[in-house]
């Protein structure tokens, strides 16, 4: 069976650091140092795709959270497998500057999630449509209602953002990612300011009784690490053709097409 390495994160190197958490599928995580950087990996039997389930996702998270508490850490997306230590060392050395820059940005910071849920009651389910026309009219009304709510959510967030942005160094926002979720934001916040941030959110909740706010975290800085290694082998068509096949990704209607436009900083 082919061997592979499961990649959890890229961190600043700290000699003799040992990871306490156990890894995915029984693998023991260890740090692979390369200059001032380290890749945290665990060995894996088999190079097939890592199945996506909650147990494995939370195991990935447990390792990354430990690293984030101890070291400046760039979390890697769940399910990333690489061939061996040699290719990983090449990868890190070729993108060392970008990694170090990203590490400097997240060092001492945590990510906080802030979600706004509608407190509105859903309208009662209407009678089954008597005709195709009634059905289409019903759909149209539903769409208009959702559009109006998205516009309102953007206005609400403008207020929300003003209050909490002073406490964050970076942020992202999605408007109405689902029907019942109005806003989904992420903030990069100095570790020392987490309590202050939570206080502001509580104040927001008091001021906006019609919405329900949920503050989550602190998390490793998943939303603020960029894709620092994404350009490594995309230089030529030949290399691009060897990229792993990635399934088409559906986009949310409310998502902007440009990542930059999605960020408020």
């Amino acid at each position: 069976m082919n061997q592979a390495l499961y990649l959890y994160a890229i961190t600043e190197a700290r000699p003799r650091y040992r990871v306490n958490q156990h890894g995915l599928e029984g693998g023991t995580p260890f740090c692979l140092e390369c200059g001032e950087l380290a890749a945290v990996v665990s060995p894996r039997d088999g190079d097939g795709p890592v199945p996506l389930n909650i147990d494995l996702a939370l195991r990935h998270e447990a390792v990354v959270e430990e690293l984030s508490r101890e070291l400046a850490t760039l979390p890697v997306r769940f399910g990333t497998l690489v061939r061996d230590e040699a290719v990983l060392a090449d990868l890190l050395s070729s993108r060392a500057d970008a990694c170090k820059e990203a590490l400097d940005r997240v060092r001492g910071h945590v990510e906080l999630g802030l979600l706004a849920l509608s407190g509105e009651e859903e309208p009662p389910t209407s009678q089954p449509p008597g005709s195709g026309r009634e059905y289409l009219l019903g759909r149209l009304q539903e769409e208009r209602r959702l559009d109006a709510r998205r516009s309102r959510a953007q206005l609400e967030f403008a207020t929300l953002f003003d209050v909490v942005r002073a406490l964050a160094v970076d942020s992202t926002l999605r408007i109405s990612p689902t029907r019942k979720l109005l806003l989904s934001a992420a903030f990069l916040v100095d570790r020392e300011r987490v309590d202050a941030f939570a206080r502001e959110v509580r104040r927001l909740q008091e001021e906006h009784g019609s919405l329900s706010f949920v503050c989550t975290g602190p998390w490793p800085a998943y939303s603020f690490v960029g894709e620092v290694l994404s350009a490594v082998t995309l230089g030529t068509e030949d290399e691009a053709s060897r990229r792993p096949v990635r399934p088409r990704r559906p986009r949310l209607r409310s998502e902007t097409s440009s990542k930059k436009a999605d960020s408020y900083v």
Binding site: D47, I54, R77, Y222, V228, V232, R243
Partner: peptide
């Protein structure tokens, strides 16, 4: 909601390693 928010991060955010060094990467957006 917090669990959903966390899972969204783990699976759709974080550093993406593209290229021929990558054997596989979970790609479940949204």
């Amino acid at each position: 909601v917090a669990l959903l928010d966390l899972l969204d991060r783990i699976v759709t955010k974080g550093v993406v390693v593209y290229g021929d060094v990558t054997l596989s990467v979970a790609d479940v957006d949204l």
